[in-house]
């Protein structure tokens, strides 16, 4: 298990990689990648059962990045975890690249399933969890969704099915950064109260500060597998987390590429010892 100092240092390095990658490619999604960093660091370092030498190990836990636009965060975490060469990041979004702006399972073996059209990943997770049961496997399935993504009806079709089939090997994580492309999630189409919605659909709900790497890891490590209910971790995060002007910009940084100057400012902030955001739970309004 990573200690807080190491985990926060890794998270800062991941953020630097994300922003450099997006700036260099001229493409990508900074805000929603930055908000999901600690979730992905916790998963890939301390939560997911995986074999670094064999991405297709049959007993591996399945991770589905349903919010596929956070690909730069996934790729950067894979690099930090030693699962991918850092040089590859330079090809992000370029012709012939393994690193598609929305992840492609046929190009990068660590990508479990291609995503990018929002709302679809949880259904796939229901399928892999059912498949584990039918094939006698004991792997868990983790699916990371955006909060805006929860506006898609298919998410709730899948939520219903997961509870109906008592899929306790399935864990959904909502990166609740409260902003989406065109505005605040509460203004675009309010999805609150998220906790009550998931609970009403038959899920066990845990809330945590999604940008506190230790807090989110604790939430993800809550024992599961015998209660006959799927679980969801509502990760309260900040869009653009870690870079002051991106945090302030909220939704405007959903798909904006930082200029060279903005990149310099951001990297300077991220080079600092960093500020720990642990402690204060952020509530769904």
């Amino acid at each position: 298990m990573l200690d807080r100092t190491d985990a926060e240092a890794i998270s800062r390095r991941v953020r630097r990689r994300i922003l450099s990658t997006i700036h260099s490619a001229g493409a990508g999604h900074a805000g929603g990648s930055l908000s999901s960093v600690e979730i992905l660091v916790a998963l890939y370092f301390d939560v997911l059962r995986l074999d670094a030498a064999n991405p297709k190990w049959p007993q591996r836990d399945r991770f589905i990045l349903s919010k596929g636009h956070a690909s730069s965060a996934l790729y950067s975490v894979l690099v930090e975890r030693g699962l991918m060469e850092s040089d590859l990041l330079r090809s992000f979004g370029r012709i012939d690249s393994e690193l598609q702006v929305h992840p492609d399972m046929h190009r990068l073996e660590w990508v479990e399933i291609s995503t990018g059209s929002l709302g679809q990943g949880l259904s796939v997770g229901v399928g892999t969890a059912l498949g584990a049961r039918l094939t006698g496997s004991d792997f868990a399935t983790y699916v990371l969704l955006g909060d805006g993504e929860c506006q898609e009806g298919q998410v709730w079709e899948a939520a219903m099915a997961a509870a109906h089939y008592r899929l306790d090997s399935l864990v959904a994580i909502v990166d609740s950064n409260q902003a989406q492309l065109t505005g605040r999630t509460s203004d675009v189409m309010d999805i609150c109260p998220l906790r009550d919605k998931w609970a009403a659909f038959g899920w066990d709900v845990v809330e945590a500060d999604g940008n506190d790497v230790i807090a989110i890891r604790q939430a993800l490590l809550v024992p599961r597998g015998s209660r006959g209910r799927p679980s969801v971790v509502i990760a309260h995060t900040t869009k653009g987390e870690g870079v002051s002007f991106m945090e302030a910009g909220g939704h405007t940084w959903h798909g904006r590429v930082p200029t060279a100057h903005e990149l310099d400012l951001a990297l300077a902030e991220l080079a600092d010892a960093g500020r720990s955001k642990g402690g204060e739970p952020r509530e769904c309004n």
Binding site: L122, S123, G125, T128, L130, G131, A132, L134, G153, Q154
Partner: peptide, 23 residues
């Protein structure tokens, strides 16, 4: 036999997940 209810989009997604596990 997996009944998904009247939810075709979810059905196709679940099928993709099942195929992913070799079924």
């Amino acid at each position: 036999f997996i009944q998904v209810g009247i939810a075709e989009q979810n059905m196709v997604g679940i099928a993709a997940g099942l195929a992913h596990t070799g079924l």
